[in-house]
Amino acid sequence: MAVTATGRRIRKRKLKAEINVVPYIDVMLVLLIIFMVTTPLLNLGTDIKLPDSKAMALSTPKEPIVVSIYADGAYALMAQGPDSNKSVTGTQLQDELGAIHRNNPEATVLVRGDRSATYQALMAGIDRINAAGISRISLISQPAGTVQQ
């Protein structure tokens, strides 16, 4: 340490190595609000209450063909993208899936069955998919413990 003419010591200030986190917290809160506002807008498709399951997730095809089966036994087909969901009858479903199968024999159909639909309604829908020639069928379920709107 240095000494002055009067014999007093001069203290050098130690540098503080701190990070000011207040601006980071502000940015985080803004991002949180943005995500909270935009998340409900991302819900595409139809409202179906899926059954719970503890099964592991499988890989999803690039362009999935999704057949929705409602509680009243009605069908909806989503084949050309997320915005192409349309209601169809049983014979229309079978005809359209048959055309898809002729173009792509390796096509996989994902079945979204409403949790209040009867087992018979789900099996009738799966039978129609099989009758169209498609044998690769997977069921979609909601992961156990998640809240569904």
Rank of each mutant, 00 (worst) to 15 (best):
16 K>W: 08
123 M>A: 11
149 Q>R: 10
147 V>Q: 07
17 A>G: 04
59 S>W: 00
102 R>S: 09
43 N>A: 11
145 G>M: 03
123 M>V: 04
62 K>N: 05
98 G>E: 05
19 I>K: 15
8 R>T: 04
58 L>K: 15
97 L>R: 04
40 P>C: 00
108 T>N: 00
133 G>T: 07
121 A>K: 06
13 R>L: 12
112 R>Q: 14
6 T>W: 06
37 V>E: 03
7 G>R: 05
128 R>Q: 14
105 P>W: 02
83 D>W: 14
67 V>W: 01
10 I>M: 10
50 L>K: 09
108 T>C: 02
56 M>S: 14
149 Q>W: 07
4 T>H: 01
39 T>L: 11
55 A>G: 05
68 S>Q: 03
28 M>E: 02
34 I>F: 07
37 V>M: 12
147 V>M: 07
14 K>W: 12
7 G>I: 00
68 S>G: 02
3 V>C: 03
115 R>A: 14
26 D>K: 15
72 D>F: 00
65 I>F: 00
41 L>G: 13
43 N>F: 11
136 R>G: 00
101 H>A: 15
78 M>I: 01
135 S>L: 09
67 V>L: 12
13 R>C: 11
44 L>S: 12
11 R>Y: 12
1 M>Q: 11
102 R>V: 10
16 K>N: 03
126 I>V: 14
55 A>K: 12
48 I>V: 15
92 Q>V: 04
130 N>V: 02
24 Y>R: 02
30 V>T: 11
32 L>R: 00
30 V>R: 03
92 Q>H: 01
62 K>Y: 02
97 L>A: 10
60 T>E: 12
8 R>N: 05
6 T>F: 06
8 R>H: 06
55 A>S: 08
119 Y>R: 11
48 I>L: 15
80 Q>W: 06
73 G>I: 04
60 T>V: 15
84 S>K: 09
121 A>T: 01
104 N>R: 11
38 T>L: 12
29 L>W: 11
40 P>A: 04
41 L>Q: 11
91 T>M: 04
13 R>T: 15
141 S>R: 05
22 V>Q: 02
56 M>G: 12
141 S>W: 01
65 I>K: 01
149 Q>T: 08
146 T>W: 08
47 D>F: 05
79 A>P: 07
96 E>S: 09
148 Q>P: 10
61 P>Q: 08
90 G>S: 08
117 A>L: 02
103 N>I: 09
100 I>P: 10
121 A>D: 15
76 A>D: 06
136 R>E: 09
20 N>W: 09
69 I>Q: 06
29 L>S: 05
108 T>G: 03
138 S>F: 08
149 Q>Y: 06
40 P>H: 04
